[in-house]
Amino acid sequence: MKKSLSIALPSTLAIAALFIFLPFGSSAEFSFRSYSPEGKLMHSFAPYQWILQQPEFMSHLLLSFKLSLIAVAFTAILVVPSVAWLHLKAQSFRSIIEVVTILPLVIPVVALSIGVQAAFPDWLQSTEYELPLMYVILSLPFTFRILDNGLQAIPLKTISEASRGLGANWPKTIIFVIAPVMRSAVAGAFFLTFALSLGEFTLTSLLHWDTFPTWVTSVSQQNIIGAIALSVFSLTVAFVVLLLVGLFSSQTKKRTEVAE
């Protein structure tokens, strides 16, 4: 039993690596393809040079970044304090909020998009800032759970009472006690909101907005290699940000472990 399992881990990891890197590696290969005038297949940086020559590339990328950052900001001021409050004082409301926040995952985004078109007033539908407001809703099932799980491991109520007992007022308690212990969970929630907003396609395209992902789809109709190069680019960015967040949160973890 033990022996069979000890081979199980490396072989599982090997399969997982293949699962991830076969499409990723193939796409990387594909993204360097170009054809000589005689129609011969070659590999070069041409597709990437082509991307950089598109004026829409930078404008759409910047727009997507901007909208994603706004979504993160809304998560920060709306979701983070609410979850902290649930753990501090409002434990009795936790289960109902938990159910409500899973709904955006169960209700199809396509259906929600239709509703947004029918419900929102024109002034809101005429600005692209309606998108980040909706991205917050779409990421809520994940952000709520990341924050909730993270806080479950921390006796937030006890430590904030201890801090207040030692003479700190509420603002000081929030800045010096609650915020630092929540750092790792908050980082995870921010990352998820950012990544989800950056890649969101369904709602954006059904509301007729043009961001980076929708632009990539329209590119594919005339230049499939370019679209694939853009896909490789965006997933690489996601992995790099993930690694950075991973480094950041493992450092916080170490620090809290020492503190214990």
């Binding site: 991830i20 076969l22 499409p23 990723f24 590696g25 193939s26 796409s27 290969e29 594909f30 993204s31 994940f142 995870g188 998820l192 990544a195 989800l196 950056l198 890649g199 969101e200 396609f201 369904t202 992902p213 990539v216 789809t217 594919s220 499939i224 679209a227 694939i228 853009l230 896909s231 490789v232 965006s234 997933l235 996601a238 992995f239 993930l242 967040v245 991973g246």
Partner: peptide, 27 residues
Amino acid sequence: SLSGVLANTGGVPLAFMFIATFGAQGS
């Protein structure tokens, strides 16, 4: 964390990655 990225940032890039791998011209 990796599963989080793969499950949530899939979408459009995912489709093109599969076309690049398993499409008629895929690697």
